[in-house]
Design a protein around this nucleic acid. Structure first.
Lengths: 213, 213
DNA sequence: GACCGCCTCCCCCGCGCGGGTGATCTGTCG
DNA sequence: CGACAGATCACCCGCGCGGGGGAGGCGGTC
């Protein structure tokens, strides 16, 4: 049984999520909170498997709450729920340690799947958000993740990184200083919300940014 | 135009390869050698793009020659040509720095493709040899790469590695000491003929050992 | 002109990683 | 029974990597 805590300031959303999730026999909502501070306290006492977290909330927002929660030992998987795809907070949430993303207009099945996926995965989850984040490189405006999108230079570096090159090799390949490559790689890791270049490579494959022949 | 040097002790093989390769307008054979020492000297003076290297040769064998050649600065891509799939030298050749593998019974088109592929790829090439090496984990005898096949434990570690875990995390995941994981990872890198865990992840994807959903 | 995003390069620091080597214990095979 | 492979853990060493800063130039926008 997967235990879930819901965090959202709107009662409508809370009960909607609860109804959707509890229609699955393997998921149970063990608690709800209406702001980040309450969420943190609740998670600490209830120790759920998964937290569905709204981003925009009064007082302590979803980003700060996520940061607090993932700092617990053996923290639950936090899935951030956003209203708009171009939410500027997405990037921050990635860095804060969120394990997944979902739009509020997602289908009921999407919510159930998301909970199951992050619960199973000790292994990393690279949500659809990263897919567009990586693939929609430098795409002109139009409403998508403006802050987190990779620049063309970063995309170039990621491509080389994902072909197994070291920073020094990448530098030589595109005639740059190693320091510059290090900077780009650091920015890529931050934007993808991953820890190291290994996870960046995985994200590149999982998102289709590079493909296995 | 891709320049190629052929190294094989049998005149028959040399002229066969030459005929096959030169039927392609973008490939030209600039030199041939009949043993490893001659190959090294020839490569140093001719600076070809690609070297097709037999493994079994009198005096200096293909492994030693490959090692010498890849130590040059801006070395050519060395493709090792073996007679048998279960050649014990395959593992050593990987370590020596070979960029590709080919069986002598491969098709004419295979040889042409191999030359083009390693020539284009500054990026790594994970030849079919690695595919079977990784995927045929622990398969019972039957004539394939006995020395280099991953053990079941190594396969388990590779799977976790390819999901983005650090050595410490892998250790915790399967209840081992970090030192043990380090040993396994080291053996995996050696068997796959790759330099670091990043390239191991790439090999895992390219070989189909793990797949992007 | 001020501002900002991007690209470029720099320094310091800590740590994880990979290489080399060696040890013990197990089970298997001849 | 000895030989060997696999799995486990250990120590040392060097280095690449990633985080945290900062700084300058360049091209856009407001």
């Amino acid at each position: 049984m997967i235990t879930v805590v819901l965090v959202d300031d709107e009662p409508l959303v809370r009960s909607g999520l609860r109804a959707i999730l509890e229609s699955s026999s393997d998921i149970t909502v063990v608690g709800v909170a209406d702001d980040g501070a309450a969420a943190h306290a609740l998670v600490r006492s209830l120790r759920p498997d998964v937290v569905l977290m709204d981003v925009r909330m009064p007082r302590v927002d979803g980003i700060a709450a996520t940061r607090l929660i993932v700092e617990l030992d053996r923290p639950p998987a936090v899935v951030v729920v956003t209203t708009f795809e171009n939410d500027d907070y997405v990037y921050d949430a990635l860095r804060a340690g969120a394990r997944g993303f979902l739009l509020k207009r997602a289908s009921a099945q999407d919510f159930v799947n998301a909970v199951r996926t992050v619960h199973e995965g000790d292994s990393l989850l690279f949500p659809g958000a990263i897919r567009s984040l990586v693939t929609a490189v430098g795409a002109p405006g139009g409403g998508g993740l403006a802050d987190a999108r990779l620049t063309s230079r970063e995309a170039e570096v990621l491509r080389l990184l994902a072909s197994g090159l070291s920073n020094a090799e990448i530098a030589e390949e595109i005639h740059l200083g190693v320091e510059t490559v290090r900077t780009h790689v650091g920015n890529i890791l931050a934007k993808l919300g991953v820890r190291d270049r290994v996870q960046a490579v995985i994200a590149a494959y999982e998102s289709g940014f590079v493909s296995s022949r």
